[in-house]
């Protein structure tokens, strides 16, 4: 029989709602709350040996501590599988389930599974790292969630081959897996076309990669008069990274004054980016943010002037939505400052 450790929050452990969300992680022998539904679904094939309960606020405000203590708890039981949730549409619970499941998988090297609603922020954050079963948006969907999670849990626990997302019910994770459909492709194409023609819902079998192609602005009429700003997602920051821009999944950007700076040096600037070998960027940060060349051009009259501030963030795994949000803010400042053009550098 497979041994499973289950992770749930204070609400599903029947401890309380928001007012009890501060409780730290604790472990209980056997089944608590939704574990019962899993037990019924597993029959004799698997057993929940322990349940870890943790408050959502506690987890999210003390991530490192919570992770360390929970991993210790899980380790003690030496389980074949770790299940978190399902979290449905509860945002902090979803993020906690994703975070802890990924940590258990990475550090203890055992299979993990969670479940949540597709719009739960935890889904987008972790669907490419762990299997997340797609559930309904409220706890009323528990039966349905368990029905989908239990068979996948058993497969994962036994180390069996996992089929395609549409067969197993997990959220598409960027890994394309072959499987046999019930109908041949041409028949599916006809059905899809009929749905599309009748404005009914249909699901493409291959979602196109997301593009956000931007139409170029008209060219600058006289570049020798233009005020140009530098903006980068390459993570160049003043030495010491004063605003603590994260090395990946950045939540903010920085704005720094380069008045009088003619060259970025190893002593004064560095990169905060964690997604590439930083050696060459740190040796000469102009390689990513070309202040030196811009100053030369400024001096030679090839451009009007270099804007006094540069904007910087880390593009490493940063959500497109956050990046757009940054740009919306600083674009306004750039316009207000009379900047005519921006050079965006990436890595």
């Amino acid at each position: 029989m497979l041994k499973i450790v289950h992770y749930i929050n204070q609400f599903f452990a029947n401890i309380g709602g928001e007012e009890m969300a501060h409780i730290p992680a604790e472990v209980r022998e056997g089944i608590v709350g939704p574990g019962l539904a899993f037990k019924q679904a597993f029959k004799d094939e698997a057993e929940i040996v322990a349940t870890i309960v943790c408050g959502d606020s506690y987890f999210n405000e003390n991530i490192d501590e919570a992770k360390t203590s929970i991993i210790e708890m899980v380790k003690k039981y030496n389980p074949d599988l770790f299940i978190a949730g399902p979290a449905f549409n509860a945002g902090r619970y979803g993020v906690a389930c994703g975070t802890i499941a990924k940590a258990v998988k990475d550090e203890l090297n055992i299979p993990v599974l969670t479940g949540m609603y597709v719009e739960n922020p935890g889904a987008d954050m972790f669907k490419n790292n762990i299997y997340i079963v797609s559930t309904k948006n409220s706890a009323a969907g528990m039966r349905d969630a368990v029905k989908k999670m239990a068979p996948l849990a058993l497969k994962l626990g036994k180390g069996e081959k996992i089929g395609a997302s549409s067969e197993e019910g997990y959220l598409p994770n960027g890994i394309r897996v072959n499987f046999f459909e019930k109908e041949r492709g041409s028949k599916r194409a006809v059905k899809m076309l009929l749905a599309k023609l009748n404005d009914k819902e249909f699901q493409t079998e291959f979602p196109m990669p997301d593009f956000d192609r931007v139409e170029p602005n008209p060219a600058i009429k006289d570049i020798t008069k233009a005020k140009i700003a530098l903006v980068t997602s390459g993570g160049i920051v003043p030495k010491g990274n004063p605003d603590h821009i994260e090395s990946s999944s950045a939540s903010k950007y920085g704005k720094y004054d380069i008045d009088g700076v003619i060259d970025l040096t190893e002593e004064t600037y560095e990169t905060a980016h964690g997604g590439y070998d930083p050696v060459y960027a740190n040796l000469d940060p102009d390689r990513v943010l070309p202040v030196d060349i811009m100053r030369e051009f400024e001096k030679e009259g090839k451009i009007g002037s270099l804007h006094r501030y540069f904007y910087t963030t880390v593009g490493n795994g940063t959500a497109v939505k956050s990046a757009k949000g940054f740009a919306e803010k600083y674009a306004k400042e750039l316009v207000a400052d009379g900047v005519d053009a921006v050079i965006l550098t990436s890595t």
Partner: peptide, 12 residues
């Protein structure tokens, strides 16, 4: 992987 959709094979 015939692209007239001759088969049932697909991917997700």
């Amino acid at each position: 992987t015939n692209e007239m959709g001759f088969n049932k094979l697909s991917a997700r």
